[in-house]
Design a protein around this nucleic acid. Sequence first.
DNA 1: CCTGAAAATAGAACCGC
DNA 2: GCGGTTCTATTTTCAGG
Lengths: 144, 144
Amino acid sequence: MGYVIDEIDQQIMRLLQHHARMPIVQISKEVNMSQPSVKERILKLEENGVISGYSTIYDLAKLNRGTTTFILLKTEHCEEFVHFCEQAIEVTDLYRISGEYNYLIKVQTATIEELAEFQDSLVKLGPSKSHISMKNIMEHRVLL
Amino acid sequence: MGYVIDEIDQQIMRLLQHHARMPIVQISKEVNMSQPSVKERILKLEENGVISGYSTIYDLAKLNRGTTTFILLKTEHCEEFVHFCEQAIEVTDLYRISGEYNYLIKVQTATIEELAEFQDSLVKLGPSKSHISMKNIMEHRVLL
DNA sequence: CCTGAAAATAGAACCGC
DNA sequence: GCGGTTCTATTTTCAGG
């Protein structure tokens, strides 16, 4: 194996983490290195799969999806459930988990009423347990 | 309120969602619109806070953080717990939730052994319940 | 890993609907 | 208000060392 991420790579990665559209010139200034060198480092991080993509973060409240809920669900119809989640716009995250429940999903709805409707569509698939987020304190942090 | 996101904005947002570094020229070709117009639309989405940022996605396995676990925790020392999470590199997400438990955190560790160590550092803060992710089927999806 | 050129992209000013 | 065209500045890419 062995892709070595050195201190400069980490600096670059910390900058890119929350500023994915930052121009390479600016990154190169911050890490005191020439543009082509920084570009090559980023390219290698991409090629090695350390960087797996660049995403845009949307304010879900502005998209009428401001209510975050985590739902644990136990089902015997796994394929059906996964397929259901893939075409349900409310579901943003889906994990196969260990323990009493099969799956954990993260759901974004406009309101609690809409959440209730979503839960209704879930009951036929199996028992579930919901935890509404009252505050999203931290999200998507990888590096300090 | 009232920021109207039309069909073209949505097209742009769908493109940017998973390709945040895509050049504006390329976006403008895909949506059949001039470069400055696309740029202005993106600027407005940023100004209105619909776009709240651009982030880089890292392969956590490549960073020796490939084990994903969700931990529900009940504590009476909220401030202390939040502060603990903020300085704990393992914690990537932190939510204040309703229900039997106070908080839900997402934790990324190298191995299950490391997870156990992390859990040890948590016991003094209150009772908790862990769900290890055996498969991350979907993450961070907002738009279809 | 750096420098220096050419090429591509982004940004600004202005025009028309 | 919205989008298009042109021109300029910046950034990226590609030589070569």
